[in-house]
Amino acid sequence: MTEKVRGTEAQEFSPEFKDEAVHMMIEQSRPIAQVARELGLIEGPLGNWVNAYRRSHPGEEAPLTTSERAHLRELEKEVRELRMKTEFLGKAAAFFAQEYR
């Protein structure tokens, strides 16, 4: 069964094409946006194909390397810090808006 994807015009993609696109993402750890752009696709359907593959093949992806895990920890730390800053700035903005009235 082929799937139609809306873009400038409807296109149909074979299961083989979808598998190749998914493998470009998963095996090469490439972003959806980059692969979609290279293949002339919309990101949404490609993301759906990847999600379907991951649901049907749990545990097949390679584990993170040591450097990838370290980078992930750094990003998680940065996200926590940015959330704290955002929360603080929101409270400060509310305080000053209330004081201004």
Rank of each mutant, 00 (worst) to 15 (best):
F96P: 00
G40S: 03
A10V: 15
Q34F: 14
R80Q: 15
E60P: 01
A52S: 08
E20D: 06
A36F: 07
M84D: 10
T8W: 09
V50N: 00
E27N: 12
L72N: 13
A21H: 02
S14Y: 10
L89S: 08
N51I: 03
A36R: 07
R101V: 00
R55P: 01
M25P: 00
F88W: 12
F88C: 06
Q34S: 12
I26E: 00
R54S: 03
M84C: 07
L39D: 03
M84P: 00
N51A: 08
S29G: 10
A10D: 05
R80S: 14
V50S: 01
I32C: 06
A33Q: 10
A70P: 00
E16V: 13
E43G: 04
Q98V: 07
E3G: 05
K18T: 06
R101N: 10
T86H: 09
I32V: 11
L41N: 00
L82Q: 10
T86W: 04
R83G: 02
N51Q: 08
E3W: 12
A36L: 11
P31Y: 07
L39M: 10
F96R: 06
R69E: 09
T66A: 13
W49S: 01
W49I: 03
A21P: 01
A94T: 05
S56D: 03
S56G: 01
K4Y: 15
F13H: 06
